[in-house]
Design a protein around this nucleic acid. Structure first.
Lengths: 215, 215
DNA sequence: CCTACCGATCGGTAGG
DNA sequence: CCTACCGATCGGTAGG
């Protein structure tokens, strides 16, 4: 078929000599994790999928952890954007608070590999997020949302950080159980199902489990 | 020191010729995960730590997944026992419900490697728990506890399974965040801190975030 | 439960 | 970004 002569390498295959290999490696990592699981992730296999030799990734990442850190960082940005977008559709503070949590769960469902990298025990150091610009980070959005609700008088008193931690636990737990398939036994596996569940659980946290007089 | 003559192998080293190698392999797996992380887990290294050759584990486990399944099964039994023990100290239905969740978080803090194996994405098939005897499984305990609270009139109406799923999400999320060290930035890392946090979050879920007249 | 062996993959580097 | 190479580890099996 093709001659093996070493010259005329003029772009027969995507060799990324001038393309964005860095991004290609990140994409390949996510695809690999999604298809083969975490155990299959190696720099060599990632390079293979990106169509380069196994030495090439070292031009962009010092080691596997650096690659995963880049994946996680991109994931955090995407998740924050997802939350902002869904919150923007709401017109009340409690609507935004709820949207914040639902978006968290939806992001996990739609980007399970990203989610696993972001929250797995893969990093030795804290994962600097480029000194995230003020309220841009996800937890900051949540805390701010709680504060807004308190100012509007719809959420009880208390340190916003503490209340936010409870909200985070709830949506993080739901997301983790969904991503790891632990709710498939309960017949929950699709995105719409997850969305409905996230909304129901958020409502429940707001109103509380305890039976009230106005119930 | 010791002669290398092949005879007289009379128990100089723990060789498990008559001991419980199976249990030793399970313990070694947990220690390995705790010390070196998941990536370091291999049947060969586990065998090495147990003091046997790398072919020995195959006498007890077909492959790595079978070993991990055994670890997980043991973990589920221990977790259920932990929950039962803590629930038994309580005298009210809501006390038992709360204790149920707190015990879940405490188990995770005290056995992080077990927790990771139990809820990680490591298994291809559903992990049969030996057809857990009726209400003995953890989720069953939770659902029963919710039902009791409803009968006592302290928890609102609704399918117990649905309410239980919300409780599970909350404590699972808190446990996962703790185990993976994501709350260390918030200064939470000890067992007592985790216990206090679990109790606070459980209370919050019961009462709800929404400001009520009797607040 | 051990010895001895297989093929395969891996992280990493030298040198271009 | 590639070729060529290093030492090391791995899962798994044969045969005892």
């Amino acid at each position: 078929m093709a001659s093996r002569s070493p010259r005329k390498k003029t772009a027969e295959k995507p060799s990324y000599h001038h393309g964005d290999l860095r991004q290609a490696l990140l994409d390949a990592s996510l695809a690999l994790i999604a298809e083969e699981g975490f155990g299959a992730l190696s720099l060599r296999e990632v390079a293979r999928r990106a169509g380069v030799t196994h030495a090439a990734p070292y031009r962009h990442f010092a080691d596997k952890e650096a690659l995963l850190a880049a994946v996680a960082e991109q994931g955090f940005r995407a998740m924050t954007a997802r939350m902002k977008a869904r919150m923007a559709r709401e017109e009340t503070p409690e609507g935004r608070l709820s949207a914040c949590g639902v978006a968290y769960v939806l992001f996990a469902m739609e980007h399970p590999s990203h989610f696993r990298v972001m929250f797995g025990p893969h990093f030795t150091r804290p994962l600097e997020l480029g000194a995230s610009e003020g309220d841009a980070d996800a937890f900051g959005l949540l805390v701010g949302s709680i504060s807004d609700c308190q100012r509007a008088g719809v959420v009880r008193e208390g340190q916003p950080q503490v209340l936010a931690l409870t909200c985070w636990s709830l949506v993080h737990g739901l997301a983790a159980l969904l991503v790891d398939g632990k709710l498939e036994a309960s017949g929950i596996s699709t995105v719409p199902q997850a969305e409905a569940l996230a909304e129901a659980q958020t409502r429940l946290l707001l109103r509380g489990l305890v039976r009230t007089t106005g119930d």
